[in-house]
Design a protein around this nucleic acid. Structure first.
Lengths: 152, 152
DNA sequence: GTAATTCCGACTGTTTTACTCGGATTTCTC
DNA sequence: GAGAAATCCGAGTAAAACAGTCGGAATTAC
């Protein structure tokens, strides 16, 4: 029931990327320096974000990444799902037609998993990257940007 | 970000227990028969529920378990936390005083984890075992009790 | 005394996590 | 064209978590 480092680091990385990619593409190396995450691990994370269509890459020297669409069109849910896969706490196979869970709609616990899943979905899909970026910018301007010891 | 079988099986087991323990204590063997979960694994799960004060044991022959308190005083959150531990998707150490996350309240992502955690907490703590038992009873009386193929 | 039961800790195979590493490819700059 | 700075990609690996099983001790009804 825990979010892995993929989701935690990946969200930090993408906020960083959004924050610094206005003028030029942001390299993985520079994210690594600021966020204290290894270059090789970041490569993996950013690859997932790219495959999900959240960032675009610019290859070659002076290359890097930038957002593939405006930050107010990217939800935290989009980001976490790209990194972690399905966020459902329990993936009840009952949504498909002929699933293994034949009495799906009769399953009492199913009601429970659905409510949990819905509440998570609702939470992550209503938070937008733009909000986080804005908040980050405010803190940065006040000189209060989160230091490196924070690992979440 | 998934609930393990501990939480999934354990909730099913406790609903079953609540449903059948009105007259006499329910043995692990009988839960196993109805719910199709191995006796040895159930022992582990029920031990957790007992240590959390949700069920009481009756030792010896004809022994078994019953609820330690009324089913409307036991929330799904109580049950899942007993089985899975803390349900927070990210356990930000920042709640303690001198945590390793010094800039805790400045951490932008922290805001995200908090919202996710709160939404999960809200969902699980407002669902009561009594509701689930009632719903189960209705289905059972209609002869529609979930068959064994449902594994959630 | 015996059978039914809870209680308990140790053990084990499998899967997932959290990474690292080596090298191929692309592109800018000189 | 050479070299450096990047992305891109797949494979590998140690450690942890998961999903159980197993053997046996303790308790109690009959």
């Amino acid at each position: 029931m825990k979010l892995s480092t993929k989701g935690r680091y990946g969200l930090r990385a993408l906020i960083d990327l959004a924050l610094y990619s206005e003028e030029e593409a942001v390299s993985i190396q520079s994210i690594s320096n600021r966020q204290n995450i290894s270059v090789s691990y970041l490569e993996q994370l950013v690859a997932k974000l790219r495959k999900a269509g959240l960032v675009q890459s610019v290859r070659g020297a002076n290359g890097g990444y930038r957002l593939a669409k405006p930050s107010d069109e990217i939800s935290v849910g989009d980001i976490l799902r790209a990194l972690e896969g399905n966020l459902d706490a329990v993936t009840c196979s009952g949504n498909q037609e002929h699933s293994t869970c034949e009495g799906a709609d009769l399953c009492v616990t199913r009601f429970v998993w659905q409510r949990i899943n819905e509440s998570i979905t609702q939470a992550v899909d209503t938070m937008m990257l733009s909000q986080l970026v804005e908040e980050s910018r405010e803190l940065r301007d006040k000189g209060q940007i989160c230091n490196q010891k924070c690992e979440n």
